[in-house]
Design a binder for these strands. Structure first.
Length: 484
DNA sequence: TGGCATT
């Protein structure tokens, strides 16, 4: 039953709308929402029915008697052509009570044919009514051992569950998520409020997710995004350079690192800065801890790094820069780079102030500059494409790193940028607390080969950022016993 | 110390 409050709201909304219609159009060619003189009320879970196969000579007053025998009618509207006003042979019907609608549907749908029609009358919930999606929940972060009954028990106190399905892979194993369909939207909403983020299932990596399931449209978009993600397109780098450009860029950076890696310490941030300094010729000879030779490097110390000349535009090197919009001559002034926090090492003064600090200045402002940089990309692409989160893939054994003590403001993108100089990053993930949406300051990076991972550990483990030093080590295998 | 998922 509708509560008084609901009824009053309904009455206010519908009554008001109807009056306005009447005034504006002069004629109430739609309908009157109430068949009675009293305030119209309908149940909050009332169903709007679509009535099809109605003879065009029947209007609302002719139809009412036919439907009133199943209950009090709240609203009955014959559909008319927007421009010609012609009867379209169908109508919408809402009973005050949900029960009446169900009775009418059972009694009439496909059960009789009105005079002059070839096909039986159609009585069914209108398309605009929930096809289930607005009362169906997606539940994530379940324990993979939980079965349908477990999920039901968790959700049953918020309403009547019409459907409960655990999503399973081809092998029958739970994917750790489920669909739960309630009989009403309100029940589903109540479950979200009570359960989303409320607990973390044993063995789950994050707290319970409870949200409305994707609509058909959203599902289509999701599928397209997944496809796009698998093809490696539509990520910011690929957008700017094309797939090949992105690849070339990574290769170039790797080469850059390799070429200087043995001689002196080169932070990845320095590599960035270097790459961004289009006119910078040399970046070798920097002070710092010696770097253990890794698989990548064979060039002796002290050589000149390759001049970076093939950057196609001043927009960005790695997808995000603090560069201002392109200048008329296509060049960003060096000063602007500095004010935007990308401080390349002065090529001719390798002993200048602590390069790590400089690098961090770059890191911080780099993160801060991201929104601006994205705006800039948007300028370059009149239809700004959605940024599609990359698919998280595990690298081969020995290729997956655990990184701790990340700056709070680092996201997946910044993490990837930081490790790109060491090789092909196939995945980067910063952990985010679902409740607060704040980074937990640790994350994962996966490379496609162990050499890159080792190179990254060598250079980045202990990398000082502010008061903290990064901890970079191989990710613990999943089945590893916790040390004590 | 992930793999975050959409019938």
């Amino acid at each position: 039953m509708a509560t008084l409050t609901n009824g009053q709201v309904d009455a206010a909304v519908h009554g008001g709308a109807a009056s306005t219609n009447g005034l504006v159009n002069g004629i109430s060619h739609t309908h009157s929402p109430a068949s009675c003189a009293t305030i119209p009320m309908k149940d909050h879970d009332a169903i709007k029915l679509f009535i099809g196969q109605i003879p065009r000579n029947l209007d609302e007053k002719d139809l009412r008697p036919l439907f009133e025998e199943f209950g009090k009618i709240y609203e009955l509207t014959v559909l008319k052509d927007r421009f010609t006003g012609m009867h379209k042979g169908c109508a919408f019907l809402t009973y005050c009570a949900r029960e009446s609608a169900l009775k009418a549907q059972t009694a009439l749908h496909e059960q009789k044919t009105l005079p002059g029609m070839n096909r039986p009358i159609q009585v069914k919930p209108a398309d605009s009514e929930s096809r289930g999606e607005d009362r169906k929940l997606f539940v994530g972060m379940l324990n993979k051992q939980q079965c349908e009954d477990d999920v039901r028990r968790l959700f049953e106190s918020f309403g009547s569950i019409e459907e409960c399905t655990i999503l399973r892979g081809p092998d029958g194993n739970s994917k750790g998520c489920a669909f739960v369909k309630y009989s009403t939207h309100a029940e589903a909403q109540a479950a979200i409020s009570a359960l989303h983020g409320s607990q973390t299932m044993p063995g789950a990596s994050s707290s319970l997710v409870v949200k409305f399931a994707d609509t058909d449209k959203e599902r289509t978009i999701r599928r397209m995004q997944q496809m796009a993600g698998q093809m490696g397109i539509f990520n910011p780098m690929a957008l700017q350079f094309g797939a090949y450009g992105a690849y070339a860029q990574v290769q170039q950076q790797a080469a850059l690192m390799a070429s200087v890696g043995q001689g002196g310490y080169l932070s990845p941030m320095a590599a960035f800065a270097a790459a961004q300094m289009q006119h910078m010729a040399t970046i070798n000879g920097l002070p710092g801890a010696p770097m253990t030779p890794t698989s990548g490097g064979s060039t002796p110390p002290g050589i000149t790094a390759p001049t970076v000349t093939s950057i196609p535009s001043p927009i960005s090197v790695n997808g995000f820069t603090g560069l201002p919009p392109p200048q008329a001559n296509g060049q960003a002034p060096a000063e602007a780079m500095f004010t935007n926090g990308i401080h390349p090492y002065p090529a001719q003064s390798p002993t200048a102030a602590d390069p790590l600090q400089q690098a961090y200045a770059g890191v911080q402002q780099y993160a801060a500059a991201f929104p601006a940089a994205y705006g800039q990309i948007s300028q370059a692409f009149p239809q700004p494409p959605p940024i599609i989160p990359q698919q998280q893939r595990e690298g081969p054994e020995g290729c997956n790193l655990f990184i701790y003590h990340l700056p709070q403001e680092f996201g997946d993108g910044e993490l990837m940028q930081m490790f790109l100089p060491f090789g092909n990053v196939i995945s980067s993930k910063v952990f985010v607390d679902r409740a607060t949406n704040q980074s937990k300051c640790f994350g994962f990076v996966s490379f496609d080969n162990p050499g890159s991972a080792q190179a990254a550990i060598q250079s980045m483990n202990g990398f000082q950022i502010g008061m903290k030093r990064l901890k970079v080590q191989l990710k613990r295998p999943k089945d590893a016993n916790r040390p004590y």
